[in-house]
Amino acid sequence: MNLVGYLFCSSIGRKIIMAVTGLILIGFVAGHLVGNLQIFQEPDHINGYGQFLHSLGALLWVARLVIIASVVLHIWAATALTLENKKARGTDYGFKHTIQATLASRAMRWTGYIVLAFLLYHLAHFTVGLAQTGTFKENLPHYTMGSDYRVAGFVAVKAGTPEVLDVYNMVVLGFQNPIVSLFYIIAVGLLSVHLLHGIDSLFQTLGLRNAKWSAGLHKIAVVLCLVYFLGNLAIPGAVLAGKLQPRAASVAAAHAK
């Protein structure tokens, strides 16, 4: 067998694919959250950030393709492994008992399903505009940058740049719908649970875990997941609590349209 064969056909190989794609996706969701938290600053930040990403052009698509490939591979590996696992047990036990497996680990498949459903909705909502089209960024009045948006000290989007998509208002208006917010909160909650076992698991699969630091690793995973959840909770939470308000002018403009 060659490298591709070992990775795609063997149990451990596919686990490694799960782990590496999982790691990429953790990187993505973490980065995504950090980017999104700019919503707590002036709209120039998050809108500038959106404009900056769009300006990357082909690079953005490379990143998107990596993420899409990761999602696809992650789901493919999970499905393939799960189907084999079902077959491997054969007749189930008449009396079921679990000694120590954590709830997070036992719920991986279900949290995965819900996260996938959420992902599709989230893309429809904020990326493609198939859900809540009224407040989709393309349908909102465009925004003009009030100040420079800097990335690593360099000016990425200049002050005064017109025709910038108004991500800020899209998010705030979107989360003003409590059902959407609730679904979002539940989904990131489950994603955090998914990550809790996922982080622990990827270290095990890549062979970077042992008794000496597994307790520490677990604590780190718990803290990361908690921070991730709270960070994600903050955005719809702040909107629902009225701490984040749409900017009146834009709202007026949208309604006028």
């Binding site: 149990s11 077959k87 120590q100 680990s105 076992h197």
Partner: peptide, 13 residues
């Protein structure tokens, strides 16, 4: 793998 065992999901049972 060929003998039909399942895969590890790191639950440590």
């Amino acid at each position: 793998d060929a003998l039909g065992f399942g895969n590890c999901t790191n639950q440590y049972e």
